[in-house]
Design a protein around this nucleic acid. Structure first.
Lengths: 195, 195, 195, 195
DNA sequence: AATGAATGAGTATTCATTCAT
DNA sequence: AATGAATGAATACTCATTCAT
């Protein structure tokens, strides 16, 4: 389908050139159509990019939730660790998608910026809540603050992993995953001890 | 001085709009001159941006090394922790500078991309070597791999902090710093125990 | 057709203003379109001018060969004389075309310079060979050098006529043609006598 | 002297790049000064180019008259022939000067065009008159028209030589000179015979 | 569903020129 | 005598968008 074709080409172009650097002509060429034809399917550039962003973000959310539920029955520690790893693998396997929302977040188009930021907030919130529930359900932890701290620490490690997945080579990334898992184990054990 | 003025305006614009989104006219307007005048001081846009980048990167390096040497006589643990904090504070206090090199790194101009990436690599190398020396000098650690792992873990935490400093609010960042410090302490103690 | 229209306008402008002096805006105005539209048909200024040059040179060659073959069955002397006259008439009737390649030859664009020079060389070669064959076939001239000299003399007269067609008025040109014919007759008779 | 220096640099630049292609900056660079300094000596670009043109044309006239008078006491035929040769040698030895007035003549600046054309007309007139007088004085030629025809023929040959000096190589030019002399001899003898 | 043709608004850059020093 | 700094106007070219077909 042409429409899907255009979205994919746009995704690719946006990943490489960013919003300002992506032209309708380049997208059209990558789709083997003429640029005028894009306007049959999309109102304008913004509309098209919005569609791309929607695809990227919903794809990300689906991948993340799928991953989460796949390991729902595992032991808590394993679940946390696996999720950490899966985040990296997803970014590595979908570098274009990640590049797109990174670049749109930094574009000077406020709409995209806000959309990405809002999504990120929502996703973080969803994840945090899930994880919070998990801990609550499995550990009889009295100290709510301790849980929150652990989760924030978890996010910190996740962020480090994320940025590493952007700037590091494949081999380095594998090490990062190991370090991240170890780090989280330490943090968790530390919390349980204090308890 | 007009030349300095132009560089600063360009820095600001690049932070907001990125390379493609920054126009000579916008820079000129922000400098209260006409765009033709920019060409009296700079050969072209690339030349100007190169000057901005040079300023940003050398500024970053100076700040980082200054910070490093300021605490050189402190206890190792304090030194590591302080550096972690200072990195965040520097990014927070110089958001424009950070934004510039983030965005240039992602621009489709290969020259800038490479310059930033090379700088980052160099800086990382410098930092890693310094820290490696520090640990070696102060701890009689037999296991070289353990030190390397600790350093990589330190970088992982630093990366998490860095990305957090891009996406989080001021209040959240303060918490991140605390988590980061704790995390590193755990990692270090863990290494020493194993020894 | 718009494309043809643009080429013709460009031809006109190039004849008047030369390469550097011809602007895309002037061409557009002369074509009753906006300058951006030119880029729908031509990659850039150089591409457009190349098309103009192609038209001019192929037009010149066609006119010259047509003229040559039209009188192929006439007596040799008549043929030479007619050709001399036709060269002038062609330049006079197509002053713009002549002006274009004269000016492009003198432009500081090496590509056009070389294209025109190469064409001129080719055309001269073609003409010389044809004429050489004609003399050889019709006169039992033993002295090859004499023929070559006659041809070079013919070219000299042709060049005088050409330059005259650039700088002289219509009435003066008519006289030039008569002088040129007489001159060539003298040169030819002189060669035959010596034989 | 700086002024002379500027004129010479401008001459060189005009020969290479023509009027439109010659910039004040290029002239300044070739003169080892800054472009603003040119305006101390010349009102504007046109004024400067006018000075160059003046130099070129007066230089040409001086060279031509010098040459003429140097051979004034020679035999008429020799005088004509020598002058023909000297014209070529002058153009060949002063290619820049010739290029300048050729290119200015074709520039779209009407002033220069007219100045060059007027000079050429004047020079032609001067030369024609001189030569006319020479013939009149030395030959008892009754037919005025014959003399005029001979002179026009002479100019035709001169023009051929001139254009050849623009487009031909050094070796070819030497042959051209021989042909031109022979041709003029034939023309002159022809006129005398008819008498 | 697709495109050929066209364009207004911009974009980096150049150029002749000015003027205070 | 010379220039550093500045600019209005122009130049080739690009880009998102439109519209008739």
């Amino acid at each position: 389908m042409t429409k899907e074709n255009i979205i994919n080409s746009a995704l690719q172009q946006l990943a490489i050139h960013g919003y300002e650097g992506t032209t309708m002509k380049k997208i059209a060429e990558a789709s083997n159509i003429k640029s005028a034809s894009i306007y049959y399917f999309f109102k304008n550039k913004e509309d098209l990019v919005n569609n791309v962003l929607l695809k990227v973000l919903s794809g990300h959310f689906k991948a993340m939730t799928d991953e989460y539920f796949k390991y729902e029955n595992e032991e808590l520690k394993v679940r946390f660790e696996t999720l950490l790893e899966k985040i990296v693998r997803h970014h590595r396997g979908n570098q274009n998608e990640t590049a797109v929302y990174l670049r749109l977040m930094e574009s000077n188009n406020t709409d995209f910026k806000m959309e990405v930021e809002q999504y990120l907030k929502q996703y973080n919130q969803w994840l945090t809540e899930k994880l919070y529930r998990n801990i609550k359900d499995e550990y009889t932890c009295k100290d709510e603050t301790a849980i929150k701290d652990l989760l924030e620490t978890y996010m910190l490690i996740g962020n480090g992993l994320f940025w590493g997945s952007i700037i590091y080579s494949d081999s380095r990334i594998e090490k990062e995953i190991v370090h991240a898992k170890n780090l989280f184990n330490l943090a968790m054990m530390n919390m349980l001890e204090e308890e």
